[in-house]
Computed example of a mutant assay.
Amino acid sequence: MMKYTFLLLIAFAACKPNTKTEDPVSPQTETAYPQNLENILNAHGTLDTWDGYKTLSFTIPGEPVSETHTIDLHSRKDRVDRDSVSLGFDGERVWLYDPKNSYTGNPEFYHNLMFYFYAMPFVLADPGIIYEETEALVVNDTSYAGLQISFEPQTGVSANDEYYLYYDTETYQMRWLGYTATFGAEEKSDQITYIAYNDWQTVGEIVLPRSITWYASENGKPTTPRRTVNFENASLDAASKPDAFFQKPAAADLN
């Protein structure tokens, strides 16, 4: 049976930021962000530069095999390839190609899950997002300023989820992501999961993670590392992949 690159998938599979994948994401033509978010985006290469790219690709190494993720940044079509299994979103439908019947996950959740975690902080500039100041996060006597991110009604599949972006006030680089998961429930959750973003690399002209680490938490703060996910062979391209690249293979199933 196919094993995931990391074992925490089930815990946060429904927790990706809630922009509707059905709607293409157009480059922003007007500034509509709080100044601290503007500063964070600028520290990572600027939103204008990010919007100039059309294709993102990266590999998550794993045992026994790795998986490659390819995303059209404007249409949000995507594709994940791993060994004999492929899955993706063609702009309308999620599909799974699994000739050996070895895939045990949920393509609906997984097809763009790691893209959202990897493409921080730029995915937090998507439409339908509400920004508020939030209390700083103090870790090992260091204070990180924060932004609380919530979603307008009917944005995505779980608009009651909330995200917390914490950043270095000197460099404005993103340092932590906190998120709650409601799994589509009507009530908000107060259980925050934390991911450390402290290992960066420059891809093209954009600063993106080389790795991210999920942390255990206690009393609402991150404590000890639980699991690290690495990213390799990352690339950004100003050209789009052909539409056929993201289309459902003839033998694939729809989800």
Rank of each mutant, 00 (worst) to 15 (best):
N39G: 08
E108I: 09
K248N: 10
Y166I: 03
Q201H: 12
P209E: 00
N140A: 14
R210E: 15
E135R: 06
E205F: 08
L73T: 02
S26D: 12
T5I: 14
S75K: 12
P153L: 05
P99L: 04
E133W: 01
K16C: 08
F231T: 07
F58Y: 06
T49R: 10
D78M: 13
V207H: 14
L9P: 06
L254C: 08
S158Y: 11
T68S: 08
V85P: 00
A250R: 15
Y163C: 04
P34V: 01
G184H: 07
H44F: 01
T171F: 04
T29Y: 11
L177K: 08
W176C: 04
L73A: 06
D190G: 01
P222W: 00
N219T: 09
G220Q: 06
G62K: 06
S86Q: 13
T49P: 14
G91V: 05
E186H: 08
N233H: 10
C15F: 01
G52F: 01
G156W: 01
Q173W: 04
I129Y: 15
A136L: 01
A43S: 05
T169N: 15
I149D: 04
D161H: 02
Y110A: 13
D168M: 07
P27F: 04
E92G: 11
N42G: 00
T68R: 06
L47W: 02
F12D: 12
T68A: 02
S235W: 02
P107I: 07
Y166E: 01
Q154K: 12
F109A: 12
Y179P: 12
A185W: 03
T202A: 09
Y167Q: 02
A239Y: 10
G88C: 07
F117S: 02
N106Y: 03
I129V: 15
A239V: 07
V80I: 11
T202Q: 15
T31P: 08
T180Q: 05
T171I: 03
W50D: 00
F6V: 03
M120Q: 15
Q28S: 15
K188T: 06
L165A: 09
L165Y: 00
K3T: 10
P61T: 03
P209K: 02
L165N: 01
F151R: 00
T182R: 04
F183N: 13
M114N: 14
P209N: 05
R76Q: 14
R76H: 14
V207I: 13
Q35S: 11
A119R: 06
V80D: 02
L73D: 11
V94M: 10
K77M: 14
I206M: 13
F115C: 11
F245M: 00
Y179K: 05
T142H: 15
L73N: 01
Y53M: 12
L41F: 01
M174T: 13
L47Y: 03
G88I: 00
E108F: 14
S217M: 02
G178R: 05
S26L: 12
I60M: 04
I71T: 11
Q28H: 12
P242H: 05
K77Q: 15
S86D: 07
Y215Q: 09
P222E: 05
E133G: 05
A185I: 00
P222C: 06
I71V: 15
Y179L: 14
N230M: 03
